[in-house]
Design a protein around this nucleic acid. Structure first.
Length: 399
DNA sequence: TCTGGGGTCCTAGGACCC
DNA sequence: TCTGGGGTCCTAGGACCC
């Protein structure tokens, strides 16, 4: 007899908001989770957006990823707090460490979500009992709540954790799919976003159950073969993907900057391109990687994006080389008249930097470029150290 | 009210080779 | 002289996730 497969999906409730609340409470402030509140970028920047909203704020219509201005209009008394990514990283580590105690077969899905396969770690306990223990341990030790979804595969566990929030455990076993999952709107299904939802609804497909009952052929016509097959499997609660414990290697590194207003100033755009090139190349070097494909993308006022990518003859981590390619491509992409909202740069086709061949014909300037990068990296790590030190001092005041 | 930043994967069309 | 089909690689764009 094959053993029962049991997967948990653990999801921190309004993660950035909860974590900020814990941080503020440590310095004696009241619990912002109980107020209409939200975490955002710079609250004074009209372009910043809501990263996480409290449950009272959500009840007033505040949504994640909407502009701060819009949220303030819906909810004028909204308490806005700027996010602290350093702190979020620590909260995430603490959360993952506790989950790992319950099963080492753990896949981190994002900063605030993970799957664990507890099939072999249940002992005499019932899954529900164990999930409640895990949820309570996180609450007690770390001060924030999670939702846990339990199912026989990752999809069902993930769908279940999204049921009523916060601080809840839900099951979604195969025999519960018709009752608990089929009445939900198509948008609730994993990988069904806004565009797919529109297509489905236009064709009278409103619920997950409607998808599940569709003939494959009709679905293929709407969303393409591969996606259609996957949607049909998901809508029927089937998913045989394993909990992946190995962290996959990065396939690309990118950075982008949205200007405080749309600009067509060539020098300002070039400066932005330079800045993102420095960031991307620095991250490449820190990861000991080199890239052999560079891409540039620009976003216009209407949010349309165009991009160019190009392979380079030799994999590189040198800022000047990457910037040079990017500048050429930007020249082809942009007429230097239309104002731009955003400029971005990415690298891909990454390889480890161990086996680099030295070319006899290497550009003699390359030595200077590398020295410039070394200085940049050193300066960056000095700043990083100083920042961490200041951070520690602030967090642990001397007695 | 005026929409961030960082990723992954898929598709379609063109070039090129056999 | 004209016409195949398959495979691979590359590029551009789009959809989705958190």
């Amino acid at each position: 007899m094959s053993r029962r497969r049991v997967i948990f999906h653990i999801d921190v409730n309004s993660a950035f908001l909860s974590w900020t609340a814990v941080q503020l409470m440590q310095s004696g402030r009241s619990d912002i989770r109980l107020l209409p509140s939200a975490v955002s970028g710079d609250p004074d920047d009209r372009r910043s957006i809501i990263t996480a909203a409290s449950i009272p704020a959500k009840k007033l219509g505040v949504k994640t990823a909407e502009p701060v201005g819009m949220a303030l209009r819906k909810c004028p008394g909204l308490v806005l707090v700027r996010g602290d990514w350093e702190w979020y990283g620590r909260c995430s580590e603490g959360f993952i460490d506790i989950c790992r105690k319950y099963s080492p077969v753990l896949q981190q899905f994002s900063i605030d979500e993970c799957f664990i396969d507890i099939s072999d770690y249940l002992m005499e306990q019932e899954p529900l009992e164990m999930a409640v223990m895990l949820k309570e341990e996180i609450k007690e030790k770390l001060g924030f709540t999670v939702n846990i979804g339990i199912g026989s595969n990752k999809l069902l566990a993930k769908m279940a954790s999204d049921f009523e929030k916060p601080d809840k455990v839900h099951t979604l076993w195969e025999h519960e799919v018709q009752e608990k999952m089929w009445p939900l709107g198509v948008r609730e299904l994993l990988w069904v976003g806004k565009k797919t939802e529109e297509k489905l609804i236009m064709n009278g497909i409103k619920t997950i159950g409607d998808i599940a009952r569709m003939p494959l052929g009709a679905l293929v016509g709407l969303v393409g073969k591969k996606f259609a097959c996957q949607l049909l499997e998901y809508a029927n609660g089937r998913d045989d993907s394993p909990v992946e414990t190995v962290v996959p290697e990065a396939k690309s590194i990118s950075a982008e900057r949205t200007m405080s207003r749309d600009i067509a100033d060539e020098r300002a755009i070039d400066k932005t391109l330079f800045n993102v090139a420095c960031v991307v190349a620095h991250r490449l070097r820190r990861a000991r990687l080199r890239a052999s494909c560079v891409s540039v993308f620009i976003k216009y006022k209407d949010f349309s994006v165009v991009q160019r990518q190009r392979q380079i003859s030799q994999a590189t981590d040198v800022t000047a080389v990457i910037l040079n390619e990017a500048r050429c491509m930007l020249n082809e992409l942009w007429d230097k008249k239309t104002p731009l909202r955003q400029v971005g740069l990415g690298v891909s086709k990454l390889t480890h930097d161990v086996a680099v061949q030295l070319s006899l014909f290497e550009d003699p300037k390359m030595g200077y470029y590398r020295e410039w990068d070394r200085n940049y990296d050193e300066e960056k790590s000095r700043k990083e150290d100083a920042r961490l030190l200041a951070y520690e001092r602030r967090r642990t005041p001397e007695k």
